[in-house]
Amino acid sequence: MAILTNGTDTITPDLIDGYESTSEARNVVHPILGSEDVDVVLRPATLPTGTMVLVMGNEASAAAAEDALRGAHVWSLVTDRGTVDMSFIVAERITRTLDRDTRDVWLVSFGWQEVDA
């Protein structure tokens, strides 16, 4: 089970069908001229960013989820899988499509950026 909420709106998808997260490493490597050695500046990676696909049971709930995700909000994601729970903002395109296989459920996909809340 997953719940997305922003304090005003709540989205409860039937399931999260696609989830991907990526963090950019920010370490800096400086080659030293005339040497095989390198000088390294260690920096922490960025907060994760990624994509998510929500499976919604009907067209009305998919449209409502799409509309809610368009707002300027910080969202909270709580799931059965504690490693994906986070605070995030919608950072990229929001897409609503009818599932090609079932022609019954709707998919709402979007890009996200984790934020400190």
Results as ranks from 00 to 15, higher is better:
Pro31Ile: 05
Asp9Leu: 05
Pro48Asp: 06
Ser23Ile: 05
Val55Trp: 01
Ala2Tyr: 10
Glu66Cys: 03
Thr8Cys: 05
Met1Cys: 03
Ala45Tyr: 04
Thr12Met: 10
Gly57Trp: 00
Glu20His: 11
Pro44His: 10
Asp39Trp: 10
Met52Lys: 11
Thr22Trp: 06
Ser35Gly: 00
Asn58Glu: 10
Thr10Gly: 01
Thr49Leu: 02
Val41Pro: 00
Gly7Ile: 08
Pro31Asp: 14
Ile3Trp: 00
His30Ser: 03
Asp14Cys: 00
Pro31Cys: 02
Glu66Leu: 13
Val41Gly: 05
Gly50Met: 06
Asp17Gly: 09
Leu47Glu: 07
Thr49Glu: 15
Gly7Lys: 11
Ala65Glu: 11
Gly7Asp: 09
Arg43Lys: 15
Met56Phe: 03
Ala25His: 06
Thr49Trp: 01
Leu15Val: 02
Thr12Ile: 15
Glu59Tyr: 08
Asp9Cys: 09
Ala60Asn: 01
Val28Ser: 09
Met52Arg: 03
Ile11His: 04
Ser21Glu: 15
Thr5Asp: 10
Arg43Ile: 08
Glu66Gln: 14
Leu33Trp: 04
Asp14Thr: 05
Glu66Trp: 11
Asp17Leu: 05
Ser23Arg: 12
Glu24Tyr: 03
Ala62Ser: 13
Val53Arg: 12
Asn27Tyr: 00
Val41Ser: 12
Met52Ile: 10
Asp17Thr: 02
Ala45Pro: 02
Pro48Tyr: 01
Thr49Cys: 05
Pro48Asn: 08
Thr22Tyr: 14
Asp39Cys: 02
Thr49Arg: 15
Met52Gln: 04
Pro44Cys: 10
Pro13Asp: 06
Asp39Met: 01
Thr46Asn: 07
Thr46Ile: 05
Ala62Lys: 03
Asp17Gln: 10
